[in-house]
Nucleic acid binder design. Structure first.
Length: 340
DNA sequence: CTAGTATA
DNA sequence: TATACTAGG
């Protein structure tokens, strides 16, 4: 869920092409979860192989990574480790949402309301351990590196932007900014087609880049203060935020009083959360230090045999998709050869 | 979500 | 050529 900083950040529209040659640290859980939620049939059910195992995440990773590599973008996927213990309440809340959605899904199916069925099915999305393993194996066929974060993936992704090992962190969640990422890219896709909720229309959402320093300068806060703003609005570690405080009020309060401890009207509620520890999760997160991020050659045969033989993807589709990638990469190496 | 195809 | 729609597994 993350936190709602959308009204506060300074965002600039951009394109995927702008990230050519750049290493981008991708919040793996965030990306795969979206594939699992949205790559579904009209009934809301995910795509599966002949054994009934879900393949939506593989389909999403295939097309998206082919696009990345074709454009010369160097993705490195960062997987979540163990969540901070303060996240337990939020994790429970999400579980309950899924349970409720399952009931609503079954009701919609019984009533033959396919649109609702699809909507609620999406809300039941959960990621299984097997899917994480499969995704890692699949990335390896592409020669794409991945990193196992000790805790939140976003924190390690943010860290990589500061060591200079990645240009930006890619995620839909704004947490990366509180984690100190230099840059966050949202909508890091080529098509960006999104369905408008409850309407049968789609809009094109372009990639957007948020430079953390620009945002801090524009709103006139330090990262430490922005973290306190985040805590007032509500984070994964205090999901409810504070009563009757949204982004606007939160900003006003921190500008006036500088920090949570000094805002008189919230002191009672402040006792109920471990705000010191929440600050530390953002300010000093547990991250992976990475020696070197290595990109390997694409194993075309590996991809084909895995998807076609083991997971029942159409051979024609895979062939033409991989040919597109091959051609793009050949063109790239030709362009490079011209320099020598 | 994305590619490919149908439609205007 | 641009946009709408749908199959994919």
């Amino acid at each position: 869920m993350g936190l709602n900083l959308k009204d506060l950040v300074v965002r600039e529209k951009t394109t995927l092409e702008a990230f050519s040659t750049k290493v981008i640290a991708i919040d793996a859980y965030n990306a795969i979860y979206q594939f699992l939620a949205s790559i579904r049939g009209p009934d809301g059910l995910q795509l599966t192989d002949s054994e009934g195992r879900i393949t939506s995440h593989l389909s999403g990773l295939l097309y998206r990574n082919v696009n990345f590599l074709s454009l010369g973008i160097k993705p490195v996927y960062v997987f979540d480790g163990k969540p901070p213990s303060l996240k337990t309440a939020e994790i429970e809340r999400r579980k309950q949402t899924k349970k409720d959605a399952t009931v609503k899904y079954e009701k919609a199916i019984a009533e033959g309301n396919m649109e609702d069925a699809r909507k609620f099915a999406q809300q039941t999305t959960s990621m299984k351990d097997g899917m994480v393993k499969e995704s890692k194996k699949f990335l390896t066929y592409f020669g794409i590196p991945y990193i196992d974060a000790p805790s939140e993936g976003e924190a390690t992704a943010a860290h990589l932007t500061n060591t200079g090992q990645a240009y930006a962190s890619a995620s839909q969640d704004y947490d990366s900014i509180l984690c100190g990422a230099k840059r966050l890219v949202r909508n890091f896709t080529s098509s960006g087609r999104r369905k408008i909720p409850n309407r049968n229309t789609y809009i094109d959402v372009l990639p957007e880049i948020i430079e953390t320093q620009k945002t801090l300068d524009a709103i006139g806060l330090t990262r430490e203060k922005l973290i306190d703003v985040g805590i007032l609005i509500g984070t994964d570690f205090n999901p409810n935020g504070f009563e009757r405080i949204g982004p606007k009020t939160a900003m006003k309060m921190i500008k006036q009083y500088s920090r949570l401890e000094d805002i008189p009207q919230i002191q009672e509620q402040l006792q109920e959360i471990d705000f010191q520890q929440i600050r530390q999760i953002f300010l000093n997160p547990d991250v992976a230090d990475v020696d070197e991020i290595v990109f390997n050659e694409v194993d075309y045969d590996g991809i084909t045999s895995y998807l076609v033989n083991e997971r029942n993807f159409s051979e024609d589709r895979i062939q033409s998709t991989l040919n597109r990638l091959k051609k793009a990469l050949e063109k790239k190496s030709q362009n490079l050869d011209q320099w020598f």
